[in-house]
Amino acid sequence: MLALDGLSKHFGGVRAVDGLDLEVRQGEIFGLIGPNGSGKSTTVNLICGVFPVTTGEIRFEGRNITRAPPHVCLAAGIARTFQNIRLFGHLSVWQNLWVAQNAMADRKASGFLNRWFGGSARARQEVEALLEFAGVAAKADDLAGNLSFGEQRRLELARALAAKPSLLLLDEPAAGMNVEEVGQLRERLAKLRDDGMTILLVEHVMELVMGVTDRIAVLNFGQKIAEGTPEEIQNDPLVREAYLGAPQSAGGGNA
């Protein structure tokens, strides 16, 4: 579904992502892990068009989207959440979902007037359903910036879903969550997959990654050092070395 082919991103002399090959298949949860600074978030930013690609190619559902700007990537069916929450803090919870749904979901079904000025009854029903999904229906008219941290995370996930994507990029969705919240997130993601969603999950919280993903790729210094099922990754010596440092070279392996 999503294929990265020799993808590279250089910031000056720093090779944040260096010749990355990756394939995410339809209907799976694919984990992307690695030490800090290994290029995970950069990869997400390249896929959804925030950073221009230095070299390499990104194909999504057979289409080349290497140079596509963010709103075109979204229209193609890629939505995302952010490592540091980026809600529209001064819009209401309801408006956060409404505006995100706007851009593409209604484009074919309705004309200019509806897209810019109103919203069909169906569109409003979908917003209500997303409010329920995120568990914030009671706070629909509150400003998004006034929600609790956990609620903001859930709302951001719902906002990404509002555009009806076929691929969801999640950048550290469990950061700052307690054990109980991670458990709930795990159930939510599993349910999304059961409903047919494909997810690329960038995450540090290992209980989430190991518990919910189908396959995992490990990055270090912008390169893929391992790929496989959660069990294979847990037993991979290269991965242990990248995370813990090789026994013979103290202090190495961390970027």
């Binding site: 979204l74 803090g89 851009a103 109103g118």
Partner: peptide, 24 residues
Amino acid sequence: TRLGIATRAVSQQPVAAQLCGIGL
């Protein structure tokens, strides 16, 4: 209106707004 809400979304979070499909 959605147009106005989109405008305010852009002024608050330009990057996130684009990733919600709002053409900057």
